[in-house]
Amino acid sequence: MQSASASGLTWVKSSYSGVNNDCVEVAALPPGGHALRDSKNPHGPVLMFGPGQWDTFVSGVTAGEFG
């Protein structure tokens, strides 16, 4: 995982997000990675994950490891 600014990506916000923009947005990266950012700070830092790192991160979130 690395922190970077990513321009030119297509960002998607969850349909579960409220109107207050208090959520994260995700963008697909080639080949199979993902970028993640805070929707309240779209020009702030971006976390970039390779495919395996993304799978591990999503598994951790699903398991509640980031309380």
Rank of each mutant, 00 (worst) to 15 (best):
residue 21 N to K: 09
residue 55 D to C: 11
residue 45 P to D: 10
residue 48 M to H: 13
residue 18 G to I: 01
residue 28 A to W: 01
residue 30 P to M: 09
residue 65 E to Q: 13
residue 38 D to A: 03
residue 1 M to D: 11
residue 24 V to H: 04
residue 35 A to M: 03
residue 46 V to M: 04
residue 52 G to W: 04
residue 9 L to D: 02
residue 6 A to T: 12
residue 14 S to N: 09
residue 12 V to T: 13
residue 45 P to E: 10
residue 21 N to Q: 11
residue 24 V to S: 00
residue 32 G to Y: 08
residue 12 V to L: 14
residue 25 E to S: 05
residue 29 L to Y: 03
residue 20 N to G: 07
residue 39 S to G: 05
residue 46 V to W: 01
residue 7 S to T: 15
residue 44 G to H: 10
residue 3 S to W: 15
residue 61 V to G: 02
residue 19 V to Y: 14
residue 43 H to R: 14
residue 65 E to G: 11
residue 29 L to K: 07
residue 15 S to H: 11
residue 19 V to R: 11
residue 58 V to W: 04
residue 11 W to T: 01
residue 27 A to Y: 04
residue 32 G to K: 06
residue 8 G to E: 14
residue 3 S to P: 09
residue 63 A to K: 07
residue 43 H to Y: 12
residue 35 A to N: 02
residue 47 L to K: 03
residue 51 P to D: 05
residue 33 G to A: 00
residue 57 F to C: 06
residue 6 A to E: 10
residue 29 L to I: 05
residue 53 Q to Y: 04
residue 67 G to W: 13
residue 63 A to F: 09
residue 36 L to F: 03
residue 57 F to M: 02
residue 14 S to G: 06
residue 64 G to N: 01
residue 18 G to M: 07
residue 38 D to L: 01
residue 30 P to T: 14
residue 3 S to A: 14
residue 38 D to S: 00
residue 42 P to L: 00
residue 62 T to C: 10
residue 4 A to T: 15
residue 65 E to H: 11
residue 50 G to L: 06
residue 22 D to L: 15
residue 44 G to K: 13
residue 23 C to P: 07
residue 38 D to P: 03
residue 52 G to R: 12
residue 21 N to W: 11
residue 54 W to R: 00
residue 41 N to R: 14
residue 28 A to G: 08
residue 56 T to P: 01
residue 58 V to S: 08
residue 57 F to T: 01
residue 63 A to C: 08
residue 21 N to L: 08
residue 66 F to E: 07
residue 15 S to Y: 08
residue 33 G to D: 01
residue 6 A to R: 13
residue 32 G to S: 11
residue 36 L to G: 00
residue 28 A to M: 08
residue 36 L to V: 12
residue 3 S to I: 15
residue 45 P to S: 12
residue 34 H to Q: 10
residue 37 R to V: 06
residue 56 T to N: 11
residue 10 T to F: 15
residue 12 V to Y: 14
residue 25 E to N: 02
residue 10 T to V: 15
residue 36 L to A: 05
residue 25 E to D: 04
residue 20 N to S: 12
residue 40 K to L: 06
residue 40 K to V: 00
residue 24 V to E: 03
residue 2 Q to M: 15
residue 1 M to L: 13
residue 11 W to E: 02
residue 57 F to G: 00
residue 57 F to W: 07
residue 60 G to S: 01
residue 13 K to D: 07
residue 61 V to S: 05
residue 27 A to H: 01
residue 43 H to I: 11
residue 40 K to P: 04
residue 49 F to I: 07
residue 2 Q to T: 15
residue 27 A to M: 04
residue 14 S to Y: 09
residue 3 S to V: 15
residue 19 V to G: 10
residue 43 H to C: 08
residue 5 S to D: 15
residue 56 T to W: 10
residue 29 L to D: 03
residue 4 A to F: 14
residue 55 D to A: 12
residue 51 P to F: 04
residue 26 V to M: 06
residue 15 S to G: 09
residue 25 E to H: 03
residue 10 T to E: 14
residue 9 L to S: 05
residue 33 G to R: 05
residue 53 Q to E: 13
residue 55 D to T: 12
residue 62 T to D: 14
residue 19 V to K: 14
